[in-house]
Design a protein around this nucleic acid. Structure first.
Length: 210
DNA sequence: ACATTAATTGTGT
DNA sequence: ACACAATTAATGT
């Protein structure tokens, strides 16, 4: 696991920071579908992702949810950073969408490193920045885009994250991410298939480019 | 190999 | 949105 850390973060972090992460970080392997951070729970660690992918979503009391953004390798979760530092309950839920290797870092260290390592400070700010942008996109999508566009955006985003044009999702799961009904998703997928943007299988969608 | 069941997907109202 | 049909996968015998 340590060589992955160096592969991914070697150019970003200075040597002594990498060593600190190795000494202090807690290695963790999440299976696909595992809930890493649940709504309402206190967060004491922030994840650095070495492989795999996570999704971050918002949920209301009735269990309705919308997808905020994905986390891929080399990313961290800006939300858990802010929750950590404020010692607040999580307002989000984080779920692994692939088997993922993660290093957890405790709050106290994260704060210390902000002063100690400028590369860490940059990393945190960049991470905030890019997640903020992705959330703006999510808001735009929610406010301005029609459901068929939102669906297609979700699929193409996920293809990018997974690095695979074949997605293993049921229509039901997709409907939950977009907070709509399964029937709507089925119909729109069918339409996209007719337009030649997709190919549908059971439990499986192939996204076509061109 | 076959039947049964459950889950997923498609379609009409 | 709902109901139901059709299709596919999973499981037991």
């Amino acid at each position: 696991m340590f060589h992955k850390l160096e592969n991914i973060y070697g150019d970003v972090f200075e040597k002594s920071l990498i060593d600190d992460i190795k000494n202090i970080g807690i290695n963790f392997v999440a299976k696909k579908g595992d809930i890493l951070i649940d709504y309402g729970s206190y967060i004491k660690n922030t994840p650095l992702l070495l492989s795999g992918a996570l999704k971050v979503l918002r949920e209301d009391e009735d269990g309705r949810e919308i997808l905020l953004y994905f986390i891929e390798k080399g990313d961290t979760c800006a939300f858990s950073l802010s929750c950590c530092i404020g010692n607040k309950k999580s307002k989000i839920k984080v779920i692994a969408i692939e088997d993922s290797e993660i290093v957890f870092l405790p709050i106290q260290k994260i704060e210390k490193w902000l002063c100690k390592y400028h590369t860490w400070r940059n990393f945190v700010f960049n991470s905030y920045n890019s997640k903020m942008n992705e959330m703006l996109q999510a808001i735009d999508a929610l406010a301005f885009m029609k459901m068929d566009e939102r669906l297609y955006k979700l699929l193409t985003d996920k293809v990018k994250i997974m690095g695979n044009t074949i997605l293993y999702n049921t229509h039901k799961e997709i409907a939950e991410s977009l907070n709509t009904s399964r029937v709507v998703v089925s119909r729109l997928l069918k339409k996209l298939e007719k337009e030649g943007k997709l190919k549908l299988y059971r439990n499986k969608i192939k996204v076509l480019y061109g």
